[in-house]
Amino acid sequence: MARVLVVDDTDNIRNLIVMNLTLEGFEVVTAVDGLDALEKVVDAAPDVITLDVVMPRLDGFKTAERLRADPRTRHIPIAMVSASAQASDLRRGTETGVDAYVTKPFDPDELVRVVRGLAETGRSPVPDSPA
């Protein structure tokens, strides 16, 4: 069973994502913003992260940059789930190493399909641990 870290500062959206993923058999851990996600990610050991862009304290792009910079988390696939879907947002997502982009309001089936695809095939090889 794949584990997903769902990061969104809006309770209703976070709960909707959790409900849809849970119904499809995913184990879900949540975070309320980027800093909360960075505090939880190593212990949660998710197979996929869904990440909102506009959040207090640390936005999704900066969170993704920090996840990609950390050898312990750089291999985890990230799906941005955001209403911020201008061409510049998509480009910035690609530049920060985001693996998929789902636009809010999202189709729950599309979200599940994207997360399942990342859980099954989107993972980069786990980096070697330092000896």
Rank of each mutant, 00 (worst) to 15 (best):
N20V: 10
D33P: 13
P46I: 08
P71R: 13
M19T: 12
V53M: 09
P56D: 09
R66E: 09
E39V: 00
L51V: 00
R57E: 14
I13D: 11
R68Q: 11
V48S: 08
L58Y: 07
P56F: 11
R66Q: 13
T22G: 15
D47Y: 01
N20M: 13
T50M: 01
D36I: 11
F61N: 01
I49A: 02
E27F: 07
D70A: 03
V48T: 03
D52Y: 06
K62C: 02
V32H: 14
V18N: 01
M55H: 10
D47M: 06
D43H: 05
M55I: 09
V18L: 09
V48E: 11
V54D: 14
D70P: 01
R14F: 09
G25M: 08
E27R: 11
V32M: 14
F26M: 10
L23I: 12
D59W: 08
A31N: 06
D47P: 02
D70L: 00
A31C: 06
L23K: 15
L21A: 14
L67N: 03
N20T: 07
G34M: 12
L35G: 10
M19Q: 14
P46S: 04
T50E: 06
V18Y: 02
I49W: 02
E24R: 14
A69T: 00
A45S: 15
R68F: 04
L16G: 09
L16I: 04
R68E: 05
E39K: 06
L67P: 04
V28H: 06
A31M: 06
T10H: 15
E27P: 01
L38I: 08
I13Y: 08
M55D: 05
I49L: 03
L51P: 00
T10V: 15
I49H: 01
L21T: 14
P71I: 10
A37H: 03
L38S: 08
F61M: 04
T30F: 07
A44C: 05
M19H: 12
A37L: 06
D33S: 13
A64S: 04
V42T: 10
D70H: 03
R57D: 11
R68A: 05
V41E: 01
K40F: 02
A69W: 04
V32C: 15
K62N: 08
I49F: 00
G34N: 13
E65L: 01
N20S: 13
L35Y: 07
A45I: 07
K62D: 07
N15G: 01
R57A: 11
K40H: 04
L58S: 02
T30E: 14
D47A: 10
E24T: 10
D33T: 12
V48K: 06
V32A: 15
I17C: 12
V18A: 10
T22W: 08
N15I: 02
R66I: 04
T10L: 15
I49K: 04
A64H: 02
D59Y: 08
V32T: 15
M19F: 10
A64K: 00
L16Y: 02
L16V: 06
E27L: 11
V32F: 12
K40Y: 05
P56K: 12
D52V: 12
